[in-house]
Every structure is written in C-alpha cells, then in structure tokens.
Simulated scan of single mutants.
Amino acid sequence: MISPGDENAPRRGRLPGGLTLRAMTPNAITTAALCSGLTGIRFAVTAASGTDPVLVAEDWRKAVAAVILAGLLDGIDGRIARLLKAQSRFGAELDSLADNVSFGVAPALILFLWSLQEAPRIGWFAALAVAIACALRLARFNAQIDVEHQPHKSAGFLTGIPAPVAAGLAFLPMYLWIATDNPVFRLPIVVGPWLVLIAFLMISNIATLGWTALRPRRSVRLELIALVGLVTVALLTEPWLTLVGICAVYLLFIPLGVMRYAKVKRQRAASARTEPNLPA
C-alpha cells in the first residue's frame, strides 16, 4: 500500500510512464473523429448492400451524419489542446492523418457507393479527386507549419477551403436528395463534376475567410447571436435543408474572401511604397 506521502506514488492525473490525462484529451478527441469518419464508411457499405428502402435511406443519413460529427470533433480538438496547453507534434500528425481519412477517404467512398458507382470508371476518378486533393492539402499545410511568411495566414485568411468544410460541401447533392427525394441529385453526371470542383477548391491558392477574418461590427453582434440560435433550432428540426442553406452561404462567402484579400494586398502594396527607405 502506498502512503499519501510516498514520493514514489504516481501523481494525480498521470498515467504510468509519465503521460498526463491532460495531454491525452485532445488526441482522444482526434481519435474519436477518426472513428466517426470510418463509421460513416461502414454505414455506406451497409446501405449499398441493403434491400429495404427505409433502412437503406436511414443508413445513408447515418453515413453523412458520421462525417459531420467527425468535422465537429475536429473543430474542437485543436482548441482544447491550446486551452489545456497540450499541443504536441504527435497530436498535429495524428490530426492530419485523421483528417485525411474522415474528410478525404470517407466522403469519396460514401459518395462513390451512393452515386458514382453507376458510372464506375469516370465516377471513381471523381471520387479519387476528393481523396487526393485532401491528402495534398494536408501535406501542404504540414510543410508550411514552420514557414514564417504566409501572406494569407498573416491577414487572417485561409488558402483554399479547409478539409472538413470541403467534406461538408461535397455532400451537398446528398443533402438535396435526402431533403427532396429527387433522383436527379443522385445522378453521377451531377455528383462527379461537383466533387471535381470541391477538389479544386481544396488545393487552390484562393484566399478564403477564416475565423480571424470574420469581425462583425458591435452593432450587429446581438443579431448574430440570435441567428446562431435560430440555425441551431433549424438543424434540429430541418437538418438537411439547413445544411443546404449553410453550404449556399459558405459558397457565397468565397468570392467575398477573394475580394477582401485583394483589398488587403492593395493596402500592403501601398504601405510598402509609402514606407521611408531606412539608411543602410
């Protein structure tokens, strides 16, 4: 029995080997996101081989919901790591690997099984485009972690659309199909080009709005808080139509981000021209 004053007693909250529970928490959330994305693939496989229309439709909904849940978990693991001061290189690498599976491989396979297998040759290339673009985007992100000069990041913008957002946008035809039961949205000729467009936006160099670039005026902050509450209620009552609306709003923000960053570039160029030359 270890006495309370024994100096060899393990510290509270510390696991054998010196790993703290605080350090494990963000990585556990990342792993949960990875498992959620993989579970989405499992629901899609079940739906593709099912025969009961009601159960099949339910499994497709679960497949999409699993990837969305992975996106929500991915959105909080980094923030929790910073809050707990538990950032680590291992956590960063694990996060990238989990993102590649949950937002690259999972959406590609789900959408292929849902629609693109009707045109297997061309459809498979469209599915591959999303998976490959996600991997390339994450590789670019990892390669630039230690790069000091990042024009987009320094101005509060992102380069291309983030992987979780891209996965959510990739499912737009599926949201419309679930909400309207219209078979047109399931056609490979609709889904394939859409996935290619999403893949392009992921690896593009266009500036998109990040959280730090969104700075609402004080006069409208209460209205925005109320809007968030209404959107939450809409997600609970009409989730698929609400997701369609969220996708539409985000797509409208893409040209806005391009224009705002062009303004920032002009301001930087003007500032550089007006700066006095320092003596050698």
Rank of each mutant, 00 (worst) to 15 (best):
L224D: 12
E148L: 13
G245I: 09
F141A: 13
V264P: 01
W60N: 05
P188I: 02
L19T: 15
L111I: 09
P193R: 02
W177A: 15
P173N: 07
R137L: 07
I41D: 07
I189E: 10
Q144A: 15
A63H: 01
G40Q: 04
K153H: 13
S102M: 02
F141R: 11
D181Q: 15
R266S: 10
V45K: 02
T159Q: 08
S154R: 09
A179S: 09
W114D: 04
Q150R: 15
Q267C: 00
I110A: 06
P10K: 02
A170T: 14
V54M: 07
P255R: 04
V130P: 11
R11C: 10
G18A: 11
Q267A: 07
L94S: 05
I145M: 14
P53M: 06
G210Q: 06
D74E: 14
W240K: 01
I80Q: 07
V220K: 06
A92M: 08
L241N: 07
G104Y: 00
S36G: 04
R266E: 13
E7M: 07
W114F: 09
K62M: 13
E148K: 12
V54I: 10
A106C: 10
F90M: 14
F200Q: 03
P4R: 05
P255S: 08
L69S: 05
D59V: 02
G210Y: 05
A33L: 08
A262L: 09
F103G: 00
A207Y: 01
L128G: 09
I161P: 01
D52Y: 00
T237V: 15
A207K: 03
G18D: 14
N182V: 10
V54K: 01
A86T: 10
G75N: 09
I225W: 11
W194Q: 06
G168N: 13
M259E: 06
A127T: 08
Q87P: 01
V184G: 04
L187R: 04
L15I: 07
A248M: 12
L222T: 15
F125G: 05
T46F: 05
G13W: 08
H149L: 13
L138Y: 00
A127D: 08
A131L: 09
P10Y: 03
V231I: 15
D6F: 07
G37E: 04
R14K: 05
A129Y: 00
